[in-house]
Simulated scan of single mutants.
Amino acid sequence: MRWDGLFDDLEAQWAELDRRALQTEAAELTRGEWSRLGLADRLRGGIGRTMRLHLIWGEHRDVRLESVGEGWIGGVVEAGGGLLVPLASLMAVEGDLGSAAEAPDRPSARVPFAAALRRLARARAAVRLTSPSGAAVAEGTVDRVGADHLDVARHPRDEARRRSAVRGRLTVPFSALGLVADAGGV
């Protein structure tokens, strides 16, 4: 009968309209959810992946993202060296940031930059400090970390931090840091 075909056609049209409305609603929900996410949330979703970091001074680094803290990220480059990058040093991030993860509510999950630097000081790791313009600031070992600055004992990267190897000390404000890298690997 023609009525059966008419009703089938109407049902199909309604189903199509419902499907489109649902798609539109889902897209709006997705846009709304994305609008609440910050760059750190997107980067947290990329932990374990390799990203190309385009730095504000024109350089880029391919980094396997390992950690995201409060205002910074940490990762490992192919050569095996680690680095810490303040988010302010990023011009762009190239890679799969299609997922996101918000920071857990517990305070221990929001590691400030100073805490990451204190870990380097405890490890007595040799580091290379780069400014936000890409210029070398210092090479040596992080001795102390304050609320907004760090002290570096300057010594050659191939020598351990011993009193005889130290060629001076430098106090550097965090605002003068564009990148903190493993002096041996980067």
Rank of each mutant, 00 (worst) to 15 (best):
Ala138Pro: 07
Leu55Ala: 03
Arg128Thr: 02
Val68Met: 07
Val93Phe: 12
Gly71Ile: 01
Arg61Thr: 07
Leu129Val: 09
Leu129Lys: 03
Pro104Cys: 13
Pro107Tyr: 12
Ala138Glu: 04
Pro156Tyr: 05
Ala125Trp: 01
Pro107Asn: 15
Gly80Tyr: 07
Gly95Trp: 12
Ala123Tyr: 06
Val68Pro: 00
Ala136Glu: 08
Val127Ile: 11
Gly75Leu: 02
Val145Cys: 08
Arg128Ala: 05
Ser89Ile: 04
Phe113Glu: 03
Ala88Pro: 10
Ser89Arg: 03
Arg122Ile: 11
Asp105Ala: 11
Leu90Arg: 10
Gly58Lys: 09
Ala115Arg: 13
Ala126Cys: 12
His54Met: 07
Ala147Ile: 12
Val76Arg: 10
Glu139Arg: 12
Ser67Lys: 11
Gly74Lys: 03
Ala121Thr: 02
Arg144Glu: 14
Ala125Ile: 13
Val77Asp: 09
Leu117Gly: 04
His54Thr: 03
Ala114Asn: 09
Val152Tyr: 03
Glu139Phe: 02
His60Val: 08
Trp57Phe: 12
Pro112Ile: 09
Arg128Asp: 04
Ser131Ile: 02
Val145His: 07
Leu84Phe: 12
Asp151Ser: 14
Glu102Lys: 14
Leu65Arg: 10
Ala79Tyr: 04
His155Gln: 11
Val85Ile: 12
Thr130Asn: 05
Arg64Ser: 11
Gly69Trp: 10
Arg106His: 14
Ala116Val: 05
Val85Cys: 14
Gly134Val: 01
Ala92Ile: 05
Thr130Trp: 12
Gly82Ile: 02
Val68Arg: 06
Ala79Thr: 03
Ala153Met: 08
Ala121Phe: 12
Ala138Arg: 03
Ala123Arg: 13
Val111Tyr: 09
Leu150Thr: 06
Gly69Thr: 03
Leu97Phe: 13
Gly58Gln: 07
Val111Pro: 04
Ile73Trp: 03
Gly81Lys: 02
Ser89Met: 06
Gly81Met: 09
Gly69Cys: 02
Arg128Tyr: 02
Leu83Asn: 00
Val145Ala: 07
Val142Phe: 00
Leu65Lys: 08
Leu55Asn: 00
Leu87Met: 10
Pro104Met: 14
Ala109Asp: 11
His149Thr: 04
Leu83Pro: 01
Gly80Thr: 04
His60Glu: 13
Val93Ile: 10
Val68Ser: 07
Arg61Pro: 04
Ala79His: 06
Val63Gln: 05
Ala103Leu: 12
Val145Trp: 12
Arg144Cys: 11
Asp62Ala: 15
Pro156Gln: 06
His155Phe: 10
Thr141Glu: 08
Ala79Cys: 03
Leu120Pro: 09
Ala138Val: 07
Gly95Ile: 13
Gly81Val: 01
Gly140Pro: 05
Gly69Arg: 03
Trp57Met: 09
Val63Gly: 09
Gly74Ser: 08
Glu66Ala: 11
Asp105Gly: 15
Asp148Leu: 08
Pro156Thr: 14
